[in-house]
Write a protein that binds this DNA or RNA. Structure first.
Length: 262
DNA sequence: ATGCCCTATTATATAGGA
């Protein structure tokens, strides 16, 4: 079977219910992974999603911060939920689809301002979170799996608007890029987005602070779609729905899509 | 690279985002 999946940091699923519905109506991915829902699970507005055919959901939530959810048209059961780095944060949920594919949805800690764990505890937590992800996937040896989410790291030079200017900015520092590579290698994960779009600038996030995000185009590719090697060849059709960054009351992230023919 | 920003909170300033 073939299915399409999207990942989107929504920055409040309740405030942005209208544009979640717009995405589901207009693009109709089979599976939508959301991050930064900023809502307890019981307050996620599921009725409208279900009315569009997204009758399955697995989620973790907390009040005000973090929160991850997977909405699916395909029957799905909860497969895992880890609290890496013991932060007591809702940053990971995994679902197993009826077709046998496991989908991991992550919201990796942003890491604060200064890229130095001695002066910025949050940066240390980000590195520790990635280390524990790495070790977990090393033990888990994932198969027939997809990993998506806001990983809060733009690894490649062409994943940011200016590589040199961002070398000391959290999200693109060499230590984070190396950590992300370790995590990716431990699970054998293939970057599906860059498998499909191997060349050129590609972003999924543009700051709210830029006066004209579209013209300035100072973006970063923080949102990722990975897959295990046994299904990576089935991945295709990757794209960033940049237009969604310009929708009414937008998230600062745009959805990233990929399809799999299995 | 900072920032003319944005969100949730038993809110009315603060913490967090990246």
């Amino acid at each position: 079977m073939s299915f399409t999946l999207a990942t989107w940091n929504i920055n409040s699923v309740r405030l942005r219910e209208p544009i979640v519905l717009k995405l589901l109506e207009e693009e109709a991915p089979d599976v939508l992974c959301l991050q930064e829902c900023k809502s307890p699970v019981e307050k996620i507005p599921t009725e409208g999603f279900a009315a569009l055919g997204y009758t399955h959901m697995v989620a973790r939530g907390q009040k005000g911060y973090n929160g991850v959810a997977i909405l699916s048209k395909i029957p799905m059961v909860e497969a895992a939920s880890e609290d890496f780095a013991s932060l007591n944060h809702a940053r990971h949920i995994a679902g197993r689809l009826e077709n046998g594919v496991t989908v991991h949805n992550f919201y990796v800690p942003a890491g604060g301002d200064k890229p130095d764990r001695e002066v910025n505890e949050k940066f240390g937590q980000k590195l520790d979170y990635l280390t524990e992800m790495r070790d977990w996937f090393h033990a888990e040896k994932p198969e027939k799996s997809i990993l998506v989410g806001d990983l809060n790291i733009a690894p490649r030079e062409d994943d940011v608007w200016d590589h040199k200017k961002l070398l000391k900015v959290v999200s693109h520092t060499p230590i984070e890029v190396e950590k992300l590579a370790e995590t990716q290698e431990s699970g054998g994960w293939v970057d599906i987005t860059r498998q499909d779009v191997p060349e050129g600038k590609l972003y999924s996030w543009w700051s709210y602070r830029a006066r004209d995000w579209d013209v300035a185009d100072k973006g970063r590719r923080l949102d990722h779609v990975w897959a295990t090697p046994d299904i990576s060849n089935a991945g295709h059709g990757s794209r960033v729905l940049r237009a969604a960054r310009g929708w009414e009351k937008p998230s600062d992230h745009a959805p990233v899509f990929a399809s799999f023919d299995l």
